[in-house]
Design a protein around this nucleic acid. Sequence first.
DNA 1: GTGAAAGCGCTAACAT
DNA 2: ATGTTAGCGCTTTCAC
Lengths: 332, 332
Amino acid sequence: MKNENISIKEIARLAGTSVATVSRVINQNGRFSKETEKRVREVIEKYNYRPNELARSLRVDKAQVVGVIVPDITNEFFSYIARKIEVDLLKQGYMAVICDTNESLEMEKQYIETLKAMRIGGIIYVSGDQKIEPIKDIPAVYVDRKPEFVEEGQGSCFIGCDNYQGGYLAAERLIKAGRKCIAVVLHAKTIATQDKRLNGYRQALHDYGIPYAEELVYKVEHVGMEQGYQITKRMLESANQTDGIFYSSDILAIGALQYFHEENIKIPEEISIIGIDDIPLSARVVPALTTVKQDYLKFGSLAANAIIKMMKGDQEKRTYILSMELIERETV
Amino acid sequence: MKNENISIKEIARLAGTSVATVSRVINQNGRFSKETEKRVREVIEKYNYRPNELARSLRVDKAQVVGVIVPDITNEFFSYIARKIEVDLLKQGYMAVICDTNESLEMEKQYIETLKAMRIGGIIYVSGDQKIEPIKDIPAVYVDRKPEFVEEGQGSCFIGCDNYQGGYLAAERLIKAGRKCIAVVLHAKTIATQDKRLNGYRQALHDYGIPYAEELVYKVEHVGMEQGYQITKRMLESANQTDGIFYSSDILAIGALQYFHEENIKIPEEISIIGIDDIPLSARVVPALTTVKQDYLKFGSLAANAIIKMMKGDQEKRTYILSMELIERETV
DNA sequence: GTGAAAGCGCTAACAT
DNA sequence: ATGTTAGCGCTTTCAC
């Protein structure tokens, strides 16, 4: 059947009824007889009609669509979260549009504007830049990194992990492996998150009587394998006795693995390393990465649930803090 | 400024003019005086007004949005393509919505329907299922895998690589390394693509006087590291003398690497392996993967260009076939 | 140079 | 149970 965008009016005409009735059977509300329903359905079927979602959304002033903004879709951590959100949303009849900002604050802003202009129903905002403006006029849930501006009870909702615990767990594991000179590499941009991890790390050091040294904390501007490689190189070339490294992201640690291999540094014999996230890749690299797991799939499902609630008008301004878990593998 | 979705009518009222004029200054068409423009702009600024994209699209019956459908956003091959498309589209003022189907034919269909209902302007359809219906009523460009139904000149556009050449290059490289018993592992689903690669492989074997053996071609249902691991395990456990393997995707080969490591099989001393794609990860695994590069970023930019042309009404029903390139690294 | 008004496809009163 | 109609926010004739 040729169908160059047939409208509800046409359907009504063809079914010998009114647009209102057609609308009613489509949306299964109001009343209509079994027979009219049947006739209408047949015509819809025959002409392969799909209601114009644009018009519907315009009329009800809200689209059944949620924007999912992620900073780096090429990082498994984010792509798995995005997928989980997408699947869960779809199950409930909503559609996700994934927006990858490629770590650019400019693109984040642009996407938020465009999504609002499209009158999408809500935004799930995963990590990304620290300095973004709060999203207003529209339900939003923030995932992974708590934005600076988030105050309790202002209509936004946050889902994240206990980063202090994560830092503590990682450092403690290294200490228990007998490491004394433990470096930590953090992401320069997501300050709040990184601060908490650093605090956890410091507390562990303190609890086990190891002095904290400022020189052992490194920062990278971007989270990628290349950055993990480079920072490790820089760290170890300036001859020091680092014997353990806590990377604030698996991706960084995996990049570092390449450096160790090139330099023929035995892991974990010479240096113990540990990451954070537990992305699938971490289990598959050689040697398999010891890490601290964030339950990122849970991030996704909680976020999907929360945004749906909010779009339905419920208040959902709570904060979910998930705990982390040590995953033993081969690099400590 | 509080702004709960102020409309063009309000702006007109506040600027002491008509909606028509406001529309004109926003879209920079028609005529209006410098002074009115200034007044209108000020009000827009003051109230932080953004036109309702839903209404605009409804009126002009087309949204400035293109849907990008990918089968597996967690695979770097696809996430990099998606990102490239997104960036290029954004530069031209279009927005991309990425839809990850998680390899599900059901989800593909659903997304296509939903995207059409949203009256998006076009669809870029990356790989995915063989058996999808052609996308009609709307511009579409197909990337990576040529769908069964694509005939030249029916309003669709295809962008892919020379898969025959890819298969040839891979097999030839293994042969030149002195390998005699060369297995190939293909993806069971993307038949057309895989057939061409298999043909290239067979031709190389033939050209170098090596007999082709049916038992040496393996298939996986899904492209993932786990599948690469498992198929390799199965292959090598049934004691055979395979000394070279061509994986029809880097991801598969990378999964295999883990098996070789566990079994203490030296690569490339005992077995040479080669992948296809050249995803960033391939350069970073240990040992670094020898592979055949597909210029997937070019896929992305060509696709973005093509869909924009089509959305503007130009015909663009051509087929782009990019050539592949051997990338030497450490596994052959 | 500007405004009035029609209409895109739909939903939701309000009638009947 | 069904039809009529107003109107969502915008663009675009068509007048003036």
